[in-house]
Computed example of a mutant assay.
Amino acid sequence: MSSHMIQPGKPWLDTNGNRIHAHGGSILTVDGIYYWYGENKEHSTPGSGIWHWGVRCYSSLDLINWEDRGLIIPPDPDDEESPLHPSAGVDRPHIIFNERTGKFVCWLKVMSKGSVQRSTVLTSDNILGPYETVRTWLRPLGMSAGDFDLVTDPHDGKGYYYFERVHSEMIVADLTDDYTDVTGYYSTHFPQPQPPFVREAPAYFTRSRKHYLLTSGTTGYYPNPSEAAVSASYHGPYTVIGDVHPTDPSRTSFHSQISSVFRHPTKRDLYIALGDRWLPRYLEDGARALTEFETHFAPGRDSDEAMEEFAAVDSSIADYVWLPIRFEGNRPVIEWRDEWSPDEFEDLP
């Protein structure tokens, strides 16, 4: 089974004909092969008690047809205290390669009981694993760390960790040389008093010596307008330059939340926003999202209550919205396409 086009918002099947499960995901290129990895939500149905079933990975040569390579980080169903237990709120895996150590380093956000969100860090010699856990229940900088992105400088290999200090602000922290912890040096950005105004889901990319962050508001699984910010350096300051989806009348980022931005290695100026459509059945006016959020995710609710609300969502049927980014000067703009292909874009010389 093969396809020739990416169809945003439509169910995406792998080469075996099964629904792809790589949510909150990213793409890493290794030896000319694309690897798309993310949360495996195949069993995450309402009432199942299963938040995740590990981290799944797929490989491709064209970004359209994906072969299932299995669970690169399996769940730990036998240990209820493990951060990898299926009931633990494992979200948004990010993997970067460390040239110094030769290791692939994976960070996981874990929403656990109580109001604290913490991190687990694993390493492997191979993108497909096996991965060894090196840190659990990490609170970077002593903070509750939510959605995040990992970044490496292509010139000196320095690593950066962009994360939402839960319900507060965005943090940019320097990583240690082995990428498994933070050094203690950090900067703060976009302070807000409470959700839904707090920015989350940071997706970093760089273009023409400028540093970009795409973020969303905090409205649970309900979609909201994405926002772009730009800076001359990793640590900012970042200047907000507005909604990335200006042609979307629903103000919901085309009913999606961006998880990462992938720069195509062989196409000229092709950046792809990888997004999740967590609620594929929710396609009414986006204004309803804030009303639902104010009812179900009001400030002051702890993460146990929030996770109960999240668990009521059938994330096993979540879809994907992948769209190319074009630029108006320095401003990134994402427009809707019913279908598209990377082949439409010019090859690098």
Rank of each mutant, 00 (worst) to 15 (best):
Ile6Lys: 05
Thr291Ile: 07
Ile50Leu: 09
Cys57Trp: 12
Thr215Asn: 01
Trp322Pro: 02
Thr266Val: 02
Ile171Thr: 09
Tyr320Ala: 08
Ser253Cys: 06
Phe310Ala: 11
Ser315Val: 14
Arg69Lys: 15
Tyr185Phe: 01
Ser316Met: 12
Arg69His: 11
Asp243Tyr: 10
Gly159Trp: 05
Thr133His: 06
Val182Asn: 03
Trp66Met: 11
Ser316Ala: 14
Asp178Met: 07
Val172Leu: 06
Gly275Val: 06
Thr247Lys: 02
Pro86Cys: 04
Pro11Gln: 11
Glu67Arg: 15
Gly17Gln: 03
Ser250Asp: 14
Ser226Tyr: 02
His245Thr: 13
His4Glu: 15
Thr291His: 06
Ala232Asn: 12
Gly38Ser: 13
Arg92Phe: 00
His245Gly: 09
Tyr160Ala: 09
Leu175Asp: 00
Gly286Met: 08
Glu99Ile: 15
Cys106Phe: 14
Lys103His: 02
Thr218Ile: 02
Asp14Thr: 09
Ser208Glu: 15
Glu308Val: 08
Pro349Met: 04
His23Thr: 00
Leu283Thr: 04
Pro195Ser: 09
Tyr221His: 00
Ala203Arg: 02
Ser3Thr: 00
Tyr271Phe: 05
Tyr34Ala: 12
Pro223Leu: 10
Met170Glu: 14
Trp51Ala: 09
Gly300Arg: 04
Met111Tyr: 10
Thr252Lys: 03
Ser3Phe: 05
Gly47Pro: 05
Ser82Gln: 15
Pro83Thr: 15
Leu214Cys: 10
His189Val: 05
Leu71Met: 15
Thr291Lys: 11
Glu164Met: 04
Glu227Tyr: 00
Ile334Gly: 04
Leu270Pro: 04
Tyr222Leu: 07
Tyr222Arg: 08
Ile20Gly: 07
Trp278Val: 09
Ala22Thr: 07
Tyr221Trp: 11
Ser82Pro: 11
Glu67Ile: 13
Arg337Tyr: 05
Ile171Phe: 01
Ser115Met: 09
Gln257Cys: 00
Lys41Ala: 02
Asp347Lys: 06
Leu150Gln: 05
Phe197Val: 07
Asp304Asn: 13
Ala229Ile: 08
Ile325Phe: 04
Ser44Phe: 13
Cys57Arg: 09
Met111Gln: 07
Val134His: 10
Glu344Thr: 10
Pro280Thr: 04
Phe262Gln: 00
Ile72Tyr: 09
Tyr160Ser: 08
Gly286Arg: 03
Thr218Arg: 10
Arg139Ser: 03
Cys106Ala: 11
Asp149Glu: 15
His21Cys: 07
Thr180Trp: 01
Val261Phe: 12
Arg263Leu: 06
Tyr204Val: 11
Trp36Arg: 14
Val116Thr: 11
Phe104Tyr: 15
Arg92Pro: 06
His167Met: 00
His52Trp: 15
Tyr131Pro: 02
Gly25Ala: 14
Tyr204Ser: 12
Arg326Trp: 12
Asp304Thr: 08
Asp147Ser: 02
Pro246Trp: 13
Gly300Phe: 01
Thr295Ile: 12
Ile317His: 09
Asp78His: 06
Arg118Ser: 00
Asp243Phe: 01
Glu169Asn: 08
Arg19Trp: 06
Pro237Asn: 02
Ser316Asn: 13
Gln257Glu: 11
Pro246Asp: 13
Pro280Asn: 01
Ser315Arg: 10
Gly102Ser: 08
Ala229Gln: 00
Tyr34Gly: 02
Thr295Pro: 01
Gly102Gln: 10
